[in-house]
Every structure is written in C-alpha cells, then in structure tokens.
Amino acid sequence: MEYMTVQEAAEKWGVSVRRVQFLCEKEIIPGVVRFGKAWAIPNEAEKPKDGRYKAHKRI
C-alpha cells in the first residue's frame, strides 16, 4: 500500500496541514497510520466530507 504525507494530502485536498492533522488524530481518514510523530495516509484515501458546516435555506 502506498502512503502520502500530511503535507501532500493537504495540497491534494486543498485544505491546511493542521486540518489534515486533526482528521488523522480523530481517525476520520480510513487507513491512517502513525509512525512516531508522522502520519501516513493511504494514497487512495479521499477527502472526508466537511461536517463543520450546515446548509442554510433562506426563507
């Protein structure tokens, strides 16, 4: 299995490095592995859906 770094995932998904680290810490990204201080993210992992925002409808 091929892995990418947090920095590579952040560039690929268009988010900050800190956001990817948070997703790794909460194990939201399937298959993520920690080696010492570094995270290894599978290359085929897709960007998780951002659950911080809700769609609002104007009335």
Results as ranks from 00 to 15, higher is better:
2 E>L: 03
2 E>D: 12
2 E>F: 05
3 Y>V: 13
3 Y>C: 11
5 T>A: 09
6 V>P: 04
7 Q>R: 08
7 Q>M: 02
7 Q>I: 03
8 E>L: 10
9 A>K: 04
10 A>H: 03
10 A>F: 06
10 A>L: 01
11 E>C: 07
11 E>Y: 03
12 K>Q: 13
13 W>Q: 08
14 G>C: 00
15 V>D: 00
16 S>E: 04
17 V>T: 12
17 V>D: 09
17 V>K: 15
17 V>F: 13
17 V>W: 08
18 R>Y: 03
18 R>P: 01
18 R>S: 12
18 R>D: 15
18 R>I: 05
20 V>Y: 00
20 V>F: 01
22 F>H: 14
23 L>F: 15
24 C>W: 09
24 C>D: 11
25 E>F: 02
25 E>H: 11
27 E>A: 12
27 E>D: 06
28 I>S: 03
29 I>H: 09
30 P>L: 07
31 G>D: 11
31 G>Y: 07
32 V>F: 00
32 V>S: 08
36 G>R: 13
37 K>N: 07
37 K>E: 04
38 A>K: 14
39 W>C: 00
39 W>H: 01
41 I>L: 02
42 P>L: 05
42 P>G: 05
43 N>P: 01
43 N>S: 14
44 E>C: 04
46 E>A: 12
47 K>A: 14
49 K>R: 08
49 K>P: 00
49 K>W: 00
49 K>A: 13
50 D>S: 11
50 D>C: 08
51 G>F: 06
53 Y>G: 05
53 Y>S: 07
56 H>N: 08
56 H>Q: 13
56 H>E: 12
57 K>M: 01
57 K>A: 05
57 K>P: 00
58 R>Q: 05
58 R>I: 07
